[in-house]
Amino acid sequence: MENLLPIAIGILIACGSYLCMRRNLVRVLLGIMLFSQAANLLIFTAAGLSSGQPPIIAPDKLTIAGPHADPLPQALVLTAIVIGFAVLAFAIALVLRAYHKTGSDDLDTFRRSDS
């Protein structure tokens, strides 16, 4: 897993960057989505992977015994996912409205605010 995940992150970032540079708004949106997922996965991977070692202190002990998973990155990733979800929801609504208003989803036509 430790070797596979960095490759997966790399692929996600490559795909995200490629989509971000398209002119079609929906693709750009998908691109930044992939980008933020790659970032989440990277936090998860960088903090170390382990399986079957819950960070739970046995009822009769005061400290944890043996190696254990770090619970913090999971909390961080969860927060980041929720925030990403909120931003993305807004972005989708925005793109939809912008499409209705401008009649186009081509970023090259979005020049009115740049004069």
């Binding site: 929801a89 989708i92 609504a93 939809l96 409205r97 209705h100």
Partner: peptide
């Protein structure tokens, strides 16, 4: 709210 508004938006189009 978000889902209901998005639903009504798609209908308009």
């Amino acid at each position: 709210k978000l889902l209901l508004v998005l639903m009504s938006q798609t209908d308009e189009s």
